[in-house]
Simulated assay, not measured.
Amino acid sequence: MTEIPRGTLPQATFYDQVGGEETFRRLVHRFYEGVAGDTELRAMYPEEDLGPAEERLTLFLIQYWGGPRTYSEARGHPRLRMRHFPFTVDKAAHDAWLRHMRDAVDALDLAPEHEQQLWDYLVYAAASMVNTPG
């Protein structure tokens, strides 16, 4: 247990501020609804069912934003670029990913400052995964 110095309050994480696990589950579920109908992005998911990919992204985002560390406990270090390397991630895939994620973020109806912080990260993350020119 972490001791909190007298006279201070623990800082709420982004995860807590936006509603915790339920918010991230809603975000990722909405995102994968878009992916399911997108022929280009769907090809990047070799599993027949998108459920395992949905769960991995949910757990990753929960951990990244200050929630439980379930992702790392189950899968180890995220190593996102390495895990995406087998797939062609070009500008078109980047744009499609962000299009579906934008829809998912908008559906959350977050406070503007939270929406911007989340979106800035997602834009950065999408750009980091590009591994093919074009």
Rank of each mutant, 00 (worst) to 15 (best):
F31D: 04
Y32R: 13
Y32Q: 13
Y32P: 04
E33F: 03
G34S: 08
V35S: 01
V35N: 00
G37V: 05
G37M: 02
D38M: 01
E40R: 12
L41H: 05
L41S: 10
A43S: 15
A43Y: 03
A43T: 14
M44V: 03
Y45L: 04
P46K: 08
P46M: 11
P46I: 06
E47Y: 09
E48C: 05
D49H: 05
D49T: 14
D49N: 15
L50Q: 13
L50M: 07
L50E: 14
L50H: 15
G51H: 09
G51N: 13
A53L: 09
E54W: 02
E54Y: 04
R56D: 02
R56S: 13
L57W: 04
L57K: 06
T58W: 02
T58D: 06
T58K: 05
F60P: 05
L61A: 05
Q63S: 12
W65E: 06
G66V: 05
G66A: 03
P68K: 03
P68T: 11
R69L: 13
R69H: 11
R69S: 11
T70V: 07
T70Q: 09
Y71P: 12
E73I: 05
A74H: 08
P78S: 08
P78M: 02
R79E: 10
R79H: 15
L80I: 14
L80A: 12
R81V: 12
R81Y: 13
R81C: 08
F85G: 09
F85N: 09
P86K: 08
F87A: 08
F87R: 06
T88W: 00
T88A: 08
V89D: 02
V89A: 02
A92S: 13
A92W: 07
A92M: 07
H94Y: 01
A96C: 05
A96W: 00
A96T: 04
W97K: 10
R99L: 04
R99P: 00
H100D: 09
M101K: 02
M101F: 01
R102Y: 07
D103M: 00
D103P: 00
D103F: 00
D103A: 03
A104S: 06
V105A: 07
V105H: 05
A107G: 14
L108R: 12
D109W: 01
L110N: 03
L110I: 03
A111I: 03
A111W: 02
P112M: 06
P112A: 06
E113G: 04
H114L: 10
E115F: 02
Q117V: 13
L118I: 14
W119H: 07
W119S: 11
D120F: 01
D120W: 01
D120L: 09
Y121S: 15
L122F: 14
V123I: 12
V123H: 12
A126W: 01
A127G: 06
